[in-house]
Design a protein around this nucleic acid. Structure first.
Length: 496
RNA sequence: GGCGCAUUCGUCUAGUGGCCUAGGACGCCGGCCUCUCACGCCGGUAGCAGGGGUUCGAAUCCCCUAUGCGCUACCA
């Protein structure tokens, strides 16, 4: 099995799914997963993209048995480093008269294409140069001197080429419509179809699982393999991934690169599970699969053939599920790695701030992404900032001052200042002044956090500590005394 | 235009001629739980693209139409 990305950008969702399926197939069948970089598009390929892709694959946990960084028996694993191989193959094909040099210029070909278009007839290369070799090519030192040439494969002009596709079944292509396609460009660089076919056979690739868009290329690759006297691999073509609007997924749909999902706080296990399900299913019931279960249960036969739309809501749900499933210490570790890129960078554990471990139990079940941790807990670390809505609720509440006073009074007595005692004290106080707990806690929540939504109040207060809690209550009280719109913005600036 | 692929709830899908009054998951709606929000639990909403066949019987097989997508490069 192989995954062979072209390094022209980030690893995106579609590529990741392709990689995942290849990897699963390899892992579940005891085969090798090989990573090969297809960089024959010299215009668009670049090294930064290769690094990026490798980083993303590693992050997903899709390790390769052969490829960049690990080597292997079939290297090198970058096509541009395999050029001698392609050149040799081209030479051989030329010598065996299975291929020939073509001297048609791009302009001439364009003309042919336009002509075909005009006559509403399918365009196929005319094969004009097919029988030139005797007269021109064989001449001294190559008669084509002075004029650039490409190398084309002689393809059958009749019959069909069958692709036994692992996910679609048998697909038939008419040879007459194929034409003698180009193997080697005039600049000496092999085309995709040529390089791929050579590499797949040379690397002893048995299964090629790739995007749908390659299906029409497949007969060409089979022809190359056969011309070379090699057996082509088995192919399976995955339908592409669509955006929510059912147009092919692209940047304008928002996050599409794996790197982006990572930085937005998604977990690799959620991404892999979700991606696995986007086009594959195990049975009528199951949706949650660990990596081990995927390896155990994945099979190419159960890959569907219809294009699937990406659904962020489902991914978010799944990500939340995996976050909840993590051991708290494990979640803390992930956050440890994640937080440095956020506004909380360096804050946890410093200057009397709470540790990540202190907060994980408070927010674990509320998080859908690691990113959520930041919004959920920022008020523990940063100067208090009131959300607009929260401020409105607080200033609009006639009893707020009274309730806050009562809360402060209750909290003063608590000793030790822990969850149980805080809860007991506050419940008692609420009882005493005869207000429902919810009514009592809500102004307190806003005063202490600036938000209408927070982790449990007792836990929050205990982590925040008595001093900070009381300070914030006091501050909220003054804020209420001032009360006007203009001073609200003033306070926000002070807070920030 | 040609060639190819596809079409089951809004979304991901189960389904391979009778088990389908079409199942699960996300979402959505309602309820329970509850200090807010979530989580969890319970319940509900919603679908076989259309038309012809074949068959005692079709989501499942065949044909046509429609729609979407891919390819049609000296891109991959």
């Amino acid at each position: 099995m192989r995954f062979a990305p072209s390094p022209t950008g980030h690893l995106h969702l579609g590529g990741a799914r392709t990689a995942l399926y290849n990897w699963l197939l390899a892992r579940s069948s005891g085969g090798a997963f090989v990573l090969r970089i297809e960089d024959t598009d010299t215009e668009r390929s670049n090294d930064a993209a290769i690094d990026q892709i490798i980083t993303s694959l590693s992050w997903l946990g899709l390790d390769w048995d052969e490829g960049p960084g690990v080597g292997g028996a079939h290297g090198p694993y970058r096509q541009m480093e395999r050029r001698q191989l392609y050149a040799d193959a081209a030479e051989r094909l030329l010598a065996e008269k299975r291929a020939y040099r073509c001297y048609c210029t791009p302009e001439e070909l364009d003309g042919e294409r336009r002509e075909a278009r005009k006559r509403e007839v399918p365009y196929v290369y005319s094969g004009r140069c097919r029988n030139l070799e005797a007269s021109v090519d064989a001449g001294n030192g190559g008669g084509g001197r002075g004029r650039e040439s490409v190398i084309r494969l002689k393809t059958p002009s009749e019959g069909h080429t069958l692709v036994h596709d692992l996910v679609r079944g048998e697909v038939s292509f008419e040879n007459a419509l194929c034409g003698d396609f180009i193997l080697v460009r005039s600049n000496g660089v092999p085309t995709y179809n040529f390089a791929v076919a050579i590499d797949d056979t040379a690397m002893e690739i048995t299964h090629v699982i790739r995007g749908d868009d390659h299906l029409p290329n497949t007969p060409k690759q089979i022809m190359v393999a056969e011309a070379l006297g090699k057996k082509p691999p088995l192919y399976g073509h995955l339908p592409l991934i669509l955006g929510p609007d059912r147009a092919p997924l692209s940047k304008r749909h928002g996050a599409v690169s794996i790197e982006e999902f990572r930085s937005r706080g998604f977990l690799r296990e959620a991404l892999c599970n979700y991606l696995a399900l986007l086009g594959w299913s195990f049975d009528a019931e199951s949706t949650l699969f660990s990596m081990d279960e995927l390896v155990e249960k994945f099979s190419i036969e159960r890959v569907g053939s219809t294009a699937a739309a990406f659904d962020m809501d489902k991914l978010l749900w799944m990500n939340g599920h995996y976050i909840r499933e993590l051991e708290p210490v494990e979640l803390a570790e992930r956050l440890e790695a994640y937080l440095p890129g956020t506004k909380l960078a360096g804050l946890p554990g410093r200057d009397g701030n709470p540790d990540i471990d202190d907060l994980v139990p408070l927010v674990q079940e509320k998080m859908k992404t690691l990113e959520d941790f930041v919004e959920l807990t920022d008020f523990f670390f940063l100067p208090l900032e009131f959300e607009k809505k929260a401020l409105r609720k607080l200033t609009g509440n006639d009893r707020a001052a009274e309730l806050l006073d009562a809360a402060a009074e209750a909290l003063q007595q608590v000793e030790p200042f822990d969850i149980e005692n805080i809860e007991a004290a506050l419940r008692r106080k609420a009882d005493e002044i005869d207000v429902k707990l919810g009514k009592f806690l809500q102004p307190l929540r806003i005063a202490v956090s600036g938000k209408t939504v927070t982790p449990g109040m007792f836990e929050t207060l205990s982590v925040l500590g008595r001093d900070k809690s009381l300070d914030r209550i006091t501050n909220a009280l003054t804020l209420r005394d001032v009360g006007s719109q203009s001073s609200i913005t003033q306070d926000q600036e002070d807070a920030g």
